[in-house]
Computed example of a mutant assay.
Amino acid sequence: MTGPLRPAFHEGQVLAAADLSATVTHARAAAARHSRYLHDWGVAEGLELLTENRTDPVTNARFVEVRVSPGLAIDGNGREVVVPETVVLRESDFEEVNGADPATTSPYPVFLTALDREPGGSAPQLDSCGGNTAKTRVEESYQILFGRLGDELTFADPPPPPVGALPAEPPAPWRVLLGYVQWTSGHFTAVSVTARSVSVRYVGVRADTVAARSGSLTLRTKPAVQDGQPALQLSGGEQPSLIFGLYQGGTVAPLMTMQANGNLNIEGSFSGRISAGSVLVASGTATDGMILPLPAGVTAEQVATGQVVLHTQLTPRVPPITGPKTIQCPVEATVDSSRRVRCLIRLTEPFSERPGVVDFLVLATVTATKGGGRQ
């Protein structure tokens, strides 16, 4: 099998239609391979399902008119699908596909596919004998299709085309999901971007290295900068750092910063898994009947499952002597399996036992896994 063929020309060559078509085909194939293998297919810009409230003049029922905004998608063949202007979805097209279905509140998928058309505005050319020839333009158009319930599940991630495949021509369209419409009593009533765990897919980038020429690389969750939205910023230069924060006034306000020396600064509190071999401590004073607290970061579930082992030390406090013949001594200072303290102090004259007070120290040790890793 040969590789891609690039047209070559020379002086005096008679150019046939196939020669000129090969020039276009070569460029289209190169662009398709770029989009197919350096990017993930999906919606690139626009193509939102928008609604406008309407009222049925006969039944006075409220419904919505659904429109697809202008935009661009890249399908899995690497082909651009351009919708140059707003398109109103026709209810008659929906009924043709799903009109026989029983009433349901489940949303139906809406797809976009590429479609070549014969342009209506281009005039045919005349040949040397004065006759008409074929039109010299092809419109790279689109088609919006309504799917059946669950169609998005069967086309969520189809197999990619062969490496050398050209952008597919009908009848092999690639369906790009635009969203979902809800249908009630002969009208559209709502739209959504997710149904049955399948959402609208947006274009992505395939790369093992992303380099910033300015020395600062920012990742954010929205195309435009919006206050309150998260961002991750990697900066080089004299003071390299990695910052996670939220946009405020157009800049990233740090919530977590890692410096080049490894120092980590966190604006809020820190919690998470405890590494094997760690020892956490809680201390204080408790009276008889109290339940000892666990060290910060340790849960009762971790203790119950054996991930954390507790070690407890109690030191009774002996109250001051109240009389010349009175002797006070601790007779019990224990803690049970539920961490409840039992502390008793005995007095000799007059003889009595009363609840006592202890100073406690709770050590929580994290057991190691078989591999010596993290819990």
Results as ranks from 00 to 15, higher is better:
Thr2Leu: 13
Gly3Pro: 00
Pro4Glu: 14
Arg6Ser: 13
Ala8Leu: 08
Phe9Val: 14
His10Tyr: 07
Glu11Pro: 04
Gly12Val: 06
Gly12Gln: 12
Val14Asp: 06
Asp19Thr: 03
Leu20Trp: 09
Leu20Asp: 11
Ala22Lys: 03
His34Leu: 15
Val43Asp: 01
Leu47Met: 05
Glu65Cys: 06
Arg67Gly: 11
Ser69Ile: 04
Gly76Val: 00
Gly78Pro: 03
Thr86His: 07
Gly99His: 01
Pro109Thr: 09
Val110Glu: 00
Leu112Met: 06
Leu112Asp: 04
Arg117Asn: 07
Ser122Tyr: 07
Gln125Phe: 05
Asn132Ala: 09
Leu145Glu: 11
Phe146Thr: 03
Glu152Tyr: 05
Ala156Pro: 00
Pro159Val: 14
Pro160Gln: 13
Pro161Cys: 10
Pro162Ile: 03
Leu166Glu: 15
Leu166Asn: 10
Leu166Cys: 08
Ala168Cys: 03
Leu177Met: 01
His187Gln: 06
Thr189Cys: 06
Val198Lys: 06
Tyr202Lys: 10
Thr218Asp: 02
Thr218Gly: 05
Thr221Ile: 02
Leu232His: 04
Leu232Gln: 04
Ile243Lys: 06
Gly249Phe: 02
Pro254Val: 08
Met256Leu: 15
Gly268Phe: 05
Gly268Thr: 13
Phe270His: 09
Gly272Lys: 10
Ala276Cys: 07
Thr285Arg: 14
Thr287Tyr: 06
Gly289Glu: 07
Ile291Glu: 14
Val308Tyr: 01
Val309Asn: 11
Leu314Gln: 09
Pro316Leu: 02
Gly323Asp: 15
Pro324Ser: 05
Gln328Trp: 13
Arg340Ala: 13
Arg340Asp: 03
Val341Tyr: 02
Arg342Glu: 07
Arg342Gly: 10
Cys343Phe: 05
Arg346Met: 09
Ser352Gln: 15
Ser352Met: 13
Arg354Phe: 14
Leu361Ile: 10
Leu363Gly: 01
Leu363Val: 01
Gln375Ser: 07
